[in-house]
């Protein structure tokens, strides 16, 4: 599904990713863990195609296609989804309108028929229930005045609605209390499928108690320095990044 080879990325002229390799087959959930400044967010923004994240060398193949050639909206239409660490507020645009606009923009790009307002509403309500997202939230302007937990739940709702082939969750656990964390994890687990790949980016092991990954990778200074099974996350939690990656403090 995703094949990253020797990826180098610079931001504001500074190299952040320095030869990153990562491969995620369909049906698997991988976790990338790393300390602050290791390049976690750069990785997720680069995958989504954000302006200012320049690929200087290497490649990202998604379903065999070079991602760099696609605009962010085209990536979304092709089934790529990024749940942001800091979801953005858009005043005056109701959450429901945003969801409908996004869903139909993706469908249109794929040459599919648009879904009418009534159907979208039904679809959203069905998915919202499991995430404990209320009608009131759907009516309110997108993310405006939402709590941290509400924002993250809304990201997961979007993932459920768009049904992506590859989902990247960027520090979805940050700022969540234990109840919200469980709700979000359940939402993610419900999306696991043999046809879908997921990448969970996180600083802490906590989230991985709920979303058990197929593989865990440790990112440090722009490279994957070690990989292993779910037990690697527990080990990291116990011993800290320095010990595991063998770097000096």
């Amino acid at each position: 599904m995703l094949e990253i080879r020797d990826l180098h990325v610079t931001v504001d002229g500074k190299e952040i990713l320095k030869g990153l390799n990562l491969s995620i087959p369909a049906g698997e959930v991988h976790a990338v863990m790393g300390p602050n400044g290791s390049g976690k967010s750069t990785l997720s923004y680069t995958l989504a195609g954000r302006e200012g994240y320049d690929i200087t060398s290497g490649s990202i193949l998604y379903k065999g296609e070079e991602l760099a050639a696609l605009t962010p909206d085209a990536r979304a239409a092709k089934g790529f989804f990024l749940a942001l660490q800091y979801p953005v507020e858009i005043p005056g645009v109701s959450t429901m309108v945003f969801l409908k606009t996004a869903l139909n923009a993706q469908r249109r790009a794929r040459g599919e028929d648009e879904v009418d307002a009534v159907k979208v509403l039904r679809l959203v309500r069905e998915k919202a229930k499991a995430l404990n997202i209320t009608e009131d939230m759907l009516r309110r302007p997108l993310n405006v005045g939402f709590s941290g937990g509400e924002k993250k739940r809304l990201e997961i709702l979007q993932m459920a609605l768009f049904e992506p082939s590859l989902a990247v969750l960027d520090e979805t656990d940050s700022g969540l209390d234990i109840d919200a964390l469980r709700l979000v994890a359940e939402g993610v687990n419900a999306m696991r499928s043999p046809a879908r790949a997921m990448l969970v980016i996180t600083h802490y092991q906590r989230l991985l108690d709920y979303i058990v990954p197929t593989r865990v990778h440790v990112l440090r200074a722009g490279q994957i320095v070690t990989s292993g099974g779910p037990e690697l996350a527990k080990e990291l939690e116990k011993k800290g990044y320095e010990t595991i990656t063998g770097a000096a403090a």
């Binding site: 989504a48 195609g49 954000r50 302006e51 605009t71 962010p72 909206d73 990536r75 979304a76 239409a77 990024l82 942001l84 800091y86 979801p87 953005v88 507020e89 858009i90 945003f98 606009t101 996004a102 869903l103 923009a105 993706q106 790009a109 979007q158 768009f162």
Partner: peptide
Amino acid sequence: EQLFYCLSRGIP
């Protein structure tokens, strides 16, 4: 940020 958020959800 607002523009990127919309783009990342498939909105041109």
